[in-house]
Design a protein around this nucleic acid. Sequence first.
DNA 1: CCATAAAATGGTAGCGCTGCCAAAAAAACT
DNA 2: AGTTTTTTTGGCAGCGCTACCATTTTATGG
Lengths: 333, 333
Amino acid sequence: MGTSRNQTAVTLAQVAEAAGVGESTVSRVLRNHGSYSGKTRDRVMTAVERLGYVPNRIAGTLASTGSRLVAFVIPSLSNIVFADVLRGAGATLEEHQFQAVFAVTDYDPAREEALVASMLAWRPAAVMLAGYEHTERTFKMLRAANCRVVEMLDVDGTALDLAVGFSNRAAGRASAEFLLKRGYRRIGYVGHDLDRDTRAGKRYSSFCETLSANGVPLADREIYREASSVERGRLGLDLLLARTPDLDAVYFSNDDMALGGYFHCLALGIVIPSQLAIFGYNGLDLGQVMPQALSTIRTPRVATGQLAAKLIADNAPSQVIDLGFELIEGATA
Amino acid sequence: MGTSRNQTAVTLAQVAEAAGVGESTVSRVLRNHGSYSGKTRDRVMTAVERLGYVPNRIAGTLASTGSRLVAFVIPSLSNIVFADVLRGAGATLEEHQFQAVFAVTDYDPAREEALVASMLAWRPAAVMLAGYEHTERTFKMLRAANCRVVEMLDVDGTALDLAVGFSNRAAGRASAEFLLKRGYRRIGYVGHDLDRDTRAGKRYSSFCETLSANGVPLADREIYREASSVERGRLGLDLLLARTPDLDAVYFSNDDMALGGYFHCLALGIVIPSQLAIFGYNGLDLGQVMPQALSTIRTPRVATGQLAAKLIADNAPSQVIDLGFELIEGATA
DNA sequence: CCATAAAATGGTAGCGCTGCCAAAAAAACT
DNA sequence: AGTTTTTTTGGCAGCGCTACCATTTTATGG
């Protein structure tokens, strides 16, 4: 044992005693709730300072009705998307004295289910999830729980309570329409695990449908059953081109994958976009710093987090908010 | 209000009543602690299932002595470094039934202080921080608190309790020695806010000292007072080269910045490494997928998180663990 | 079959705080 | 000075659970 553990922490009762006032008075002063005189406040604060009192929020939450915890159950932390959402939510939650708790599902619905159960044990004020796809038991728990639910980053489906995001289907369609408009006709796809990342799956199917509807079916595709990464993007494009060399454009499941594809082209001297066009998804800053700005779709990730937090703070009524997205006509497609 | 809120949740007492056993029996069964018969367990579990009981961990934590919360107070979520650390810690903590809570400081010591105070109110089992540099009051609170403290990602200094990481000074030195060994003599630096990111500051000063000690002082530098980013790296190199065109190598504060520099060279046709060498820090996967693998230092970020969590789970005695790092002799320097 | 050990169970006092209510003190009117 | 109103204050019952102890039940042994 390194430092001084196992000492019993200072309690509110001790502060009350030291200040010569009642417990409820200390509680009122500390929460600035109810009325108390100036001299009482001073005495309490002096005692707090002197004893180094730190209120015990565990006890506070148990005693009062509502908790100030917000539970995030997100697919991944490596994916900058969720980091952005958390960042957006962070500031707003803090302002309203909420505390964020989180857990990572690795895109696994079963793990999500287990983690939601575990989170609900903390009686959070809200549970924030990614997307609409959850297990039956997850839905059941969430409905039974006495808390708000925000499903983020998607609006294609039926929300449980609140939802903030944008349409992945519309994004897939917009991407396809853009490539068609630019005249590409031999279009391929390089993606990652679609079963687990259902939002990427929605983009993909909508992308394909749009192509087909325009008489230009998807020429080929290369899909990894793993998480997305720059490396996977590069390998994926390599395999795809080996099989179907005459492609004139490739749609990637996201910007990371697209960057990998871009690197592959650079390494092999494939000229972009004349020999091969590249299109991504997310609109990361990184893509816009490339020698040729990446053509992609910019999604309001930080705004999603901010709004989600705001809705919880304001105890807004159930609703679905579509924040939209922006297509960036970069230089790679 | 969308869903069914404000219903009172099922309590342990209700489960006990429904199962026809005492409260303590239910508690024992649920925690698999103490002894109980098979038929009792079945009756309890049936009641739990039927009522949809979810244990209230707030109450549980208050009643028992030690909490199972681990508080992470980290500088940033956008920086993949911390995401990696959290990812590493996540699995281990979960195994041991710990729950992670986190807050982001944006590299601001004052915010760190406020957040540590706020975190301590949850009476966590441990507080995980980045580095050794904290405000006086932060140190004081941490010492007074009845919890473990892990300072991560640095070992150059005096630890409060536990520390897991690697030496940023040694990394700076190794980078300088590598560039010198390769024969570079006109070496520049492109970095970000060194006052706030003290670990980057340590690398920088150690890098400079090593150069000087070898009679090759730093030729020039370009330092932004903001967070690191690919874009800043690109702009930084642009400015640096405009001022000092004869540089033959540039040391970047991290891989993101270096990637920006790489993009800048690609865009301007600067040949790497013959015209200009580039060296980064972190060893992100991304850097190794570039057409030319980035020369950099790979840091054990995930391992840092894992070990930090393990030490907490095992209630290990105070100690400092240096996980070391690996210099990647890529193709850019 | 009784003594003794072991296993299973229930009762209940808190954990530290908040919310409610009643009481006391101060202020504002007659 | 005597009321009435308003502001401050303290007491105390929980919040839902766990830890401890006492008690009952079951198993073991001679």
